[in-house]
Amino acid sequence: MRLPFIGLLLFASTAVAQVGPTVTFATAATGSTNLTVTVPKSECGNARRFTWQRSGNICNGSLFIYATTGTCGSEPAATDLKLETLTATGATSGTVNFSVADLLAARGSGADGGPAATCDTQQTEISFNLCASARQLGGLYGTDCQTTYANVGAPAYVVKFDPVAPPAPTIAKVIPRDSALSVQVNGAETDSTVVVEAAAVASADAGTGTDDAGTDADAGTDVDAGTDVDAGTDLDAGTDDAGAGLVGALAVEGTTGPVTRVTKAAGEGNVVVTGLTNGVTYRLQATIIDAAGNESAQSAAVEATPVKSNGLFDAYKDAGGEEGGGCAATGGGIAGGAVLAALGIWLSSRRKVS
């Protein structure tokens, strides 16, 4: 009497051991960060490649690999981009290739998907989830194929299309240095890159500036006159890529080459353009490149002139010190503290800029 029961237990334990399918995704796509692949408008038509591997058995039907703007865990809708349909005897590994253009076109194929979009007509950011879905196992022993689907894909990759260029930045302040200009650019997001280009303004003596031109280090060069110059701003020089080309309005009559181009990650302080000639006026312009690679419109152009540093006194004035002499200028208190602060700033700037 016990044998059938033992046989039933053996059968049940064997059946419960059946494992449903899982799909593992991987990609070496450029721009993949934290499982999000960000695609700029310029790469909308470029195919993205993902590899996949399947383990476990497919339960009574098909396993779907697809991309959707919705959540994973169902059978693909008409508006989703269906990439692979696998059966119980299907492949256990492979690749899928698709572009944002393919994803946008698929959205127009269903009644609820809205009008079909293209790389040019899609004007807002949109994200797509890469999914794998299959029927769930259920029943008394967890071996019966159900009619409902579940998400069986991991990790959760997202393809984000970002066609929107960042707003044009502003050049808020330019601080003259010895053979350099320190440029404060406002309007950059934390994950973007700031680009500043400088071109000499044509004049009768352009290119022949003297080392002692301009006895007042700040005269006429502070774009935000009347505000604290903030001489303690980080002055780490960016990468100098001279001759890379003019940005927008710099390419107009009245400027001469070569062009100095400096890039720097947002949030790392002022952009310092080095290798300039003292006494020569330069026209400056900035742009922003966001994490997707979209570039902003150009900032308004400003002009400034690098000057030879006269040493500690110029640094003291940059820190807000008075030009007059007397006890207040050299003694203790606020003025004395400004001198000490300026000394440290001057030494730092001499190390970093000169």
Rank of each mutant, 00 (worst) to 15 (best):
G138T: 11
T124H: 12
A111Y: 12
L83F: 07
E84M: 12
V100L: 00
L137N: 08
R107Y: 00
Y157V: 09
D120K: 11
C131L: 06
P115W: 11
D102F: 00
A168W: 09
A105F: 03
A154V: 07
R135A: 09
T147S: 15
K173R: 14
G110H: 03
T148Y: 10
R135H: 14
R135F: 07
A150E: 12
G142F: 05
K160D: 12
S109W: 01
P115D: 15
T87H: 11
G142T: 06
Q122G: 03
D162S: 13
Q123D: 14
T148C: 04
E84A: 13
S133F: 10
G110F: 05
F161D: 04
A180C: 09
A106Q: 10
R135S: 06
R177C: 01
F98H: 04
C131D: 06
Q122R: 11
L104W: 00
F128P: 08
A117P: 04
P163E: 02
K82W: 10
Q122W: 01
G108E: 06
G114V: 05
Q146K: 12
T118K: 04
E84W: 03
D120P: 03
V96M: 10
N97G: 11
N97Q: 12
L83N: 06
V164Y: 06
Y157D: 10
F128T: 03
L104H: 00
L103H: 02
P167V: 07
G110M: 05
V183D: 02
D178M: 07
A134I: 01
A134N: 03
I171C: 01
A101D: 14
P115R: 14
C131P: 05
S109Y: 06
T95F: 09
P155A: 08
A154R: 12
G114C: 05
A91Y: 07
T124Q: 15
T121Q: 02
L130N: 11
P167G: 09
N151A: 14
T170P: 02
T92W: 04
G108P: 03
Q184V: 08
Q122H: 00
T118G: 12
A180D: 08
Y157L: 09
S179R: 15
G114K: 06
F98S: 08
T170A: 13
A172F: 00
T124N: 15
Q184T: 10
V183L: 03
I126W: 06
A91E: 13
E84C: 07
L104F: 01
A172P: 00
G108V: 01
S99F: 07
A132P: 03
L181V: 08
Y149I: 06
Q123L: 15
I175L: 13
T147Y: 08
D120N: 13
V183W: 04
T124K: 14
A165W: 02
Q123W: 01
R177E: 13
S179I: 06
T92N: 15
V100P: 01
V164L: 08
I175D: 07
I171T: 07
A88V: 13
A132H: 04
Q146F: 05
L86V: 12
G142W: 06
G153D: 03
L103I: 01
P155K: 05
P115I: 13
L181R: 03
